[in-house]
Amino acid sequence: MDFLGVRDKTFVIFGLANKKSIACAIGKNLVAAGARVIHVVRSEQRLETAQKLFPESSVFICDVEEEENIVAVRDKIKALLGETQIDGIVHSIAFANYSEGLKPFHETLKKDFLQAVNISCFSFISIANHFKGLLAPTASVLTISISTTKMAAENYGYMAPIKAALDSSLCFLTKSFSAFSAIRFNAVAPSLLKTSASAGVPGYVDSYLYAEKVIPRKKSLKTTEAADTATFLLSERSSGIVGQTIVVDAGMAMNYFDAEIVRAVA
Rank of each mutant, 00 (worst) to 15 (best):
S181E: 06
S181W: 13
A182L: 14
A182E: 15
A182G: 12
I183D: 05
R184D: 03
R184S: 02
R184V: 05
R184Y: 02
F185W: 03
F185Q: 08
F185D: 07
N186P: 11
N186I: 10
N186A: 03
N186Q: 09
A187E: 11
A187N: 06
A187C: 03
A187H: 05
A189G: 04
A189P: 03
A189K: 01
A189N: 06
P190L: 00
P190K: 08
P190Q: 02
P190G: 00
S191P: 01
S191M: 05
S191L: 09
L192P: 00
L193T: 08
L193E: 01
K194L: 10
K194A: 12
K194W: 04
K194N: 12
T195F: 00
T195N: 02
T195I: 02
T195W: 00
T195M: 05
S196Q: 10
S196W: 00
S196T: 04
S196P: 00
S196C: 00
S196I: 00
S196L: 04
S196R: 00
A197G: 08
A197W: 08
A197E: 14
S198L: 07
S198V: 09
S198G: 13
A199V: 01
A199C: 11
A199G: 13
G200S: 13
G200K: 14
G200E: 11
V201R: 10
V201H: 08
P202M: 07
P202W: 06
G203C: 10
G203F: 06
Y204V: 12
Y204R: 10
V205D: 14
V205R: 11
D206T: 10
D206E: 13
D206F: 01
S207H: 08
S207R: 14
Y208D: 02
L209M: 11
L209F: 10
L209A: 13
L209W: 12
Y210R: 15
Y210M: 15
Y210K: 15
Y210A: 15
Y210F: 15
A211Y: 12
A211P: 05
A211Q: 12
A211T: 11
E212H: 06
E212W: 11
E212K: 15
E212P: 00
E212F: 00
K213E: 15
K213T: 09
